[in-house]
Design a protein around this nucleic acid. Structure first.
Lengths: 214, 214
DNA sequence: AACGCTACCAAGCAAGCGCTTGGTATTCAA
DNA sequence: TTGAATACCAAGCGCTTGCTTGGTAGCGTT
């Protein structure tokens, strides 16, 4: 289902998710998922996504990792710092993923499609577990932490705005379109399930592209 | 700024928010905002919207109302029942508001515009304090409470789907368009501020209409 | 062999949470 | 004048929460 130029190109030259993670870890931008801290972050990301930040206790996270709750604070200063770290890593990874996806697309329209599809893949945890937290749990972050994550997110949003401007997007300024897309895409988390015989993620991306850039 | 047919028609024949509430209270569908229970619901709605359900304590609500925390449970069986009641009343009120707004609009396109504008007004608390909770705090609700609210929401969504189908909307089926709009509109809560010299709510509604129904 | 470092355990503290209980002041109908 | 209903207070219970403290096992380096 849906064999566009994007996915073909990705299969040909792109790194696998594993390889991309490995590269980012080597550069020191991401925590090694195999390390204790990395395992902690992955578990926290999944739990925050499922139950929300407030309804997830440090004991929940510790139990799933297989340690006691107090041991968490050997790796993080506070529960909020866990959330902040998760958001930082998610942002970095999603940014790298989207960057390479956009580069492979050729036409402006395909680049925008790549953005939409990349974010959908991130949201639906095929690719970036914990991405939806960035929107859902934004209010749970302290002011300082928000600034920190926002700075990392700059690059990500910059790619988006460029793609929106280049494609012939309806509705005036790119920032508005992007903001509407943030809401529309992140909300798919609560109704769209890619498994099954319904729409695939690529199909959904096509439909959305059709609305915003006819 | 923006004097379309919709707002003019509304000024001519429509009930004021106060009158609409009064009517719904008389019919027994809404709690009287002047009653102790009503005051409690209003305060809870505002606090849930601002801080989220989990970060709002019953003591916070009680303090703002001017009673002690224990006294709340004279009116509600549990904190979750407060959230459920807030969502029920918000749904009923928003539904009634949108119903009358759509009825006054004449063309299918204006009816869809009325839906968009009505929901934006609800989200930005000019009209329906607590509306954004319906999306933001949906996960905080128990399964049974969700069913209850969903049943009330049926009418609201029915109006939406009708308006989307009638207007020449891009993007295939109405349900998909509505779901994208739910996300896009509710997310405006975190970036759009109608006060100031920027876009008004009516302006924003126009822009969004232009994207989804060109 | 001694050291230091990382990763963890065991135990528990202080604070805050939702909620309960028993009682009281006011109101209003019978 | 009584009785019931409403709306609330005063006090606190039991539990969960994020987090702290002091100690230890394992491991690689010198």
């Amino acid at each position: 289902m849906h064999k566009g130029t994007t996915s073909l190109a990705r299969q040909q030259q792109n790194l696998s998710p594993q390889q991309l993670i490995g590269e980012l870890v080597e550069r020191g931008e991401l925590t090694d998922p195999g390390s204790p801290r990395g395992r902690l972050l992955n578990v926290a990301a999944r739990q925050f996504e499922q139950k929300g930040f407030a309804r997830t206790t440090v004991r929940d996270i510790a139990t799933e990792v297989g340690i006691l709750s107090g041991s968490i604070f050997h790796h993080f200063a506070s529960k909020e710092q866990i959330l902040c770290a998760v958001m930082r890593e998610v942002t970095i990874f999603a940014s790298a993923r989207m960057h390479s996806a956009v580069q492979e697309a050729e036409s402006p329209r395909d680049k925008l499609r790549a953005c939409i599809q990349s974010e959908l893949e991130a949201i639906h945890a095929q690719a970036v577990p914990g991405f939806s937290i960035l929107v859902l749990e934004w209010r749970s972050l302290s002011k300082e932490s928000r600034k920190e994550v926002l700075r990392l997110r700059d690059e990500y949003e910059h790619i988006w705005l460029g793609a929106i401007r280049a494609a012939s997007c309806r509705g005036g300024d790119a920032a508005l379109v992007r903001r509407l897309l943030v809401g529309a895409l992140s909300h798919t988390y609560s109704w769209f399930k890619p498994r099954g015989k319904g729409l695939s993620i690529a199909d959904l991306a096509d439909r959305i592209l059709l609305i915003f850039a006819p």
